[in-house]
């Protein structure tokens, strides 16, 4: 018998006796939540988010400030390009992937580009000053950016260079985490990307005396542009 069958067999045997549901002995709370019952409730317990898109943007901005994410609302592609050009002083090389927004920005800088579209050398990507990506959505509740291997140029582009710039559109802002996971299902359920990540602020650590330091291994800076 395979080890898989051994383990599954031990599990089945162990489960012949049923266990109490936590919290049900003391107070007769609800039944164990089934999928249909749990999902609609989860958002009710999580931290509050506003009703309108404006509330969402305000919350995203507030969370970004706390997380030390540089969040910028821009009116137009021109505005976006102007701001990125200003940031680019001192950059020697950028990394990006092809996409509607990244294409509109990357070429304008006149810097050498490492594109991850067709594969790349890790050391080449590592030598870039910035990784510019798109994303799947922004989450107001937590100030997070949802990226996947497909939407953001693979696994490493958004984590290896010291500065990660996200280009997003206002319509990509979602209120909360349940909405973000619903979007993933809707968009990818038939064939998920092998990598999905919720990025919440620049890389950080508190491993030395619990003192916050940014840029532990990932980007020291995270900039989110919202058109």
């Amino acid at each position: 018998m395979s080890e898989r069958e051994n383990i599954l067999g031990r599990i089945r045997e162990a489960l012949t006796l049923s266990a109490d549901v936590p919290g049900h002995k003391q107070n007769n709370l609800l039944q164990v939540v089934s999928e249909e019952e749990a999902a609609p409730h989860i958002h009710e317990w999580l931290p509050a988010v506003g009703e309108t898109i404006e509330d969402g943007l305000a919350l995203f901005a507030k969370n970004s400030a706390e997380l030390k994410t540089d969040f910028r609302l821009v009116d137009s592609l021109e505005d976006l390009n102007a701001q990125i050009t200003e940031m680019a002083s001192g950059w020697k090389k950028i990394a990006t992937h092809s996409g509607e927004l990244t294409d509109a920005v990357g070429d304008k800088l006149g810097l050498p580009v490492c594109s991850t579209d067709e594969g790349y050398e890790a050391s080449d990507l590592e030598s870039c000053d910035v990784g510019i990506t798109q994303c799947d959505c922004l989450v107001a509740q937590t100030g997070s950016v949802l990226v996947t291997a497909r939407s953001a140029g693979g696994r490493a582009l958004s984590v290896l260079p010291p500065h990660h710039i996200v280009l997003a559109q206002r319509s990509q802002l979602l209120p909360d985490l349940p909405a973000a996971f619903a979007l993933l299902e809707e968009r990818y359920a038939s064939n998920y990307p092998s990598f999905i990540s919720l990025i919440t602020g620049p890389s950080r650590t508190g491993d030395i005396e619990r003192i916050l330091v940014l840029g532990a291994h990932g980007p020291k800076q995270l900039t989110v542009f919202c058109l």
Binding site: P47, G154, S194, T200
Partner: peptide
């Protein structure tokens, strides 16, 4: 969010990543 809250007093930990396989045919790395 519950893990981040109880574990480190954060609303959400900086990176929450999902891995569902090796590099897929349409992907550039992994």
């Amino acid at each position: 969010p519950m893990l981040a809250t109880a574990g480190a007093g954060q609303a959400l930990t900086c990176y929450n990543s999902l891995y569902g396989g090796p590099r897929q045919p349409d992907e550039c790395d992994g």
